[in-house]
Design a protein around this nucleic acid. Structure first.
Lengths: 235, 235
DNA sequence: CGTATACTTGACAAAAATCAATTCGGGTGG
DNA sequence: CCACCCGAATTGATTTTTGTCAAGTATACG
């Protein structure tokens, strides 16, 4: 095991959960946090397990997946640096509703539920920030629902890529790269289709030069043309 | 217009937003609330409009719908008595993300955003309750997403009916009736399909005696057999 | 009693899932 | 360093589900 990772208030400054707070409060939150590295592929928590910690990601990337009663797997979302995860159930004293797995080596913070709860009670702005965060995710989920019900697969894939760009895009020499390593299956699961369909769609886009995949990473060369597909199908 | 509707703390006791609070706090919330009746069909707020009030339903039923950038309509959820709606955006000082329309004559409470915010700041339990409420809806949305991505239309319709039964079912002589008036299109929008497909599916079930529709209301004669379809397709 | 709205139903088309091989690419161990 | 192996990706053929188009019927409401 590595030496303890130092956590300072600055690391929390980028997190939406601690926005609009005085520096000392952030420092207090940092002091209560536990930090640890998580190797690629390691499960952080399991669906159905008692929610014993509230989590946030400092670096890396975590995949949140859910398996239904019938065994069907679903990809709920990706967590990037600065985002919280597995936090709602600790407030309601419940169970984690999904699995969380590190997709790459990552550093996570976590809190004891009682500590975080106390902090939120003392500083209601944190609770309000959390409502905003969860509310935003709810809005995204509802948008995805509408898309899934009404739009064709190519548009959904396009929108998925745009959302990922937004969440984890970084400019490179020849485009914008999505920071996570993504398999076709991952994209299919978010877009609500199969890896075959995604493969066909993306192969087509690659042929047309809209994007390239390099070492399991997508580089979008022309976000605008992807956006055009997202807005008007059949192109 | 009718005389002002009296609002007392008791009316708030059933609302999840005000759970686990001392009675005086509920009384304060009641004192700040405005109440009004809303006739069937009346729009309570519009998507995109500045969120000027936070809402909760005392009685009746409200339909929350959303139209996407491309004009596609989507049914987000039904709001029943005791549930809040249009509350998240007032915390983030934003715009209503959807339309809200009374499906039957209803009574709604509403608060001035500043009042509710002040109350939440003073009593962080309210904010924490709100996280739990929004988190629960997020979980439901994700469940619907998984269903939509992996299951066939008949199973989704079956699950939709079961969920509606759960939310608004009432025993009658020959089965369980869903309390609000539902058009085929409503069911289709929630289940993520078209009214044609729903019509075919439900006509088939009617032929087999699983349910009947009476005056735009569904009466489920055999919830168990519907549940069987929800769990195993092709029946 | 007529008009509008919802519902049913049939025929057809099309999107996308499924089935089935191959190929690619990166990592491991000889 | 090379050969091999495994998971991932591509791609073709086929089938299924479901959406679309179209027409006609029932029901509600003024």
């Amino acid at each position: 095991m590595a030496a303890p990772i130092p956590v300072d208030a600055k690391a929390l400054a980028d997190m939406a959960l601690f926005a609009s707070l005085p520096v000392p409060v952030r420092a207090a939150a940092a002091a209560m946090a536990g930090a640890r590295t998580v190797a690629r592929g390691v499960r952080i928590f399991d669906q159905g397990e008692r929610a014993g910690r509230a989590h946030a990601l400092l670096s890396g990337c975590v995949r949140i997946t859910q398996s239904g009663s019938d065994g069907e797997e679903g990809l709920v979302r990706f967590i990037g640096p600065g985002e919280i995860f597995g936090c709602v159930p600790v407030l309601t004293d419940g169970l984690y509703p999904a699995d969380a797995t590190a997709m790459v080596d990552a550093v996570e913070l976590s809190w004891d539920p009682a500590d975080l709860l106390a902090l939120m009670q003392r500083h209601s702005q944190i609770a309000i920030n959390m409502v905003a965060i969860v509310g935003k995710r709810l809005g995204e989920a509802q948008e995805r629902l509408r898309e899934l019900a009404t739009q064709r697969a190519d548009r959904r894939v396009a929108r998925t890529l745009l959302r990922l760009l937004d969440q984890a895009g970084r400019r490179t020499g020849d485009g914008v790269q999505i920071e996570f390593p993504l398999r076709r299956k991952d994209i299919a699961d978010i877009a609500g289709t199969t890896l075959h369909t995604v493969s066909r769609i993306i192969a087509d886009w690659e042929r047309r030069g809209l994007l390239v995949t390099r070492h399991r990473h997508l580089v979008i060369r022309s976000p605008d043309r992807i956006r055009a597909i997202a807005d008007a199908p059949g192109n």
